[in-house]
């Protein structure tokens, strides 16, 4: 167990070091996500779509597209010069590679959320002060589920010519329940003051566990494909 944790830490830090050096992924993703929020805000017009449901739905659109780019780019690092084969040749559990890639993707997604969320709040007059902790918790739990699926499918599609487009086509439908539940839970929390307990958060956690377990189990097969 300790050995696996050590491997996961090394692999995650490697990904983050590569990203910190080039800042290619996060720079691109943040610009895209901010643009999505701004364009949708302008399209909906002033006051045309304020409130918890609209704000969280539009933030999710930005997170979804930003996330797909993150998953694609972090996996592309492994495909360049076949670095992935170097990892597969090391005597490590292949689940560690999945866990590390997922962690690196989550760090980047959280960084994206840190930048994009204030932009959404500003454009949609969304009062986050009602339940900032609840918002962070629901978003974090939802993003784990989304990233769990995205990381798995990025490994599957990264060797194909369609890569990013195919990834979006596969990941969006599968993670739709997560997005719908997350948006509904946040809308209830911010518009009706409903407590998080029994609000669907447990369902989100169940989705996370299911996606994580399934992805961990099949990642080895996906890498061989």
């Amino acid at each position: 167990m300790t050995r696996a944790i050590r491997h996961i830490t090394m692999l995650t830090l490697k990904d983050l070091r590569i990203e910190a050096r080039g800042r290619q992924t996060i720079g691109l993703v943040v610009v895209l996500a901010v643009l999505i929020v701004v364009v949708l805000a302008l399209g909906l017009g002033s006051g045309g779509g304020s409130g918890g449901l609209t704000a969280t739905a539009i933030l999710w659109v930005a997170y979804l597209f930003g996330g797909v780019l993150i998953f694609e780019k972090t996996m592309a690092v492994e495909r360049h010069d076949d670095a992935l084969a170097g990892l597969l040749l090391a005597p490590i559990d292949r689940g560690s590679i999945y866990a590390a890639k997922l962690l690196a993707n989550l760090v980047l997604m959280f960084a994206l959320a840190l930048v994009v969320t204030p932009v959404g709040i500003m454009f949609f007059q969304f009062d986050l002060s009602v339940a900032p902790g609840g918002f962070a918790l629901v978003m974090a739990v939802s993003m784990i589920g989304y990233a769990a699926v995205g990381t798995l499918f990025a490994a599957l599609t990264s060797s194909t010519r369609l890569a990013g487009g195919l990834l979006a086509m596969l990941v969006f439908p599968i993670t739709l329940p997560v997005v719908l539940i997350s948006t509904r839970v946040l809308a209830n929390l911010f518009e009706h003051g409903t407590s998080l307990a029994g609000s669907g958060l447990a369902l989100l956690i169940a989705f996370d566990l299911m996606f994580l377990a399934a992805s961990w189990l099949v990642f080895d097969v996906v890498l061989e494909a």
Partner: peptide, 21 residues
């Protein structure tokens, strides 16, 4: 192909793979 990370230095690559081993 090299199976190396282009953005890391030669030493960083070798130390990384060495630790995995």
């Amino acid at each position: 192909q090299s199976m190396l990370y282009r953005d890391l230095s030669a030493l960083e690559n070798l130390v990384f793979f060495g630790r995995l081993h």
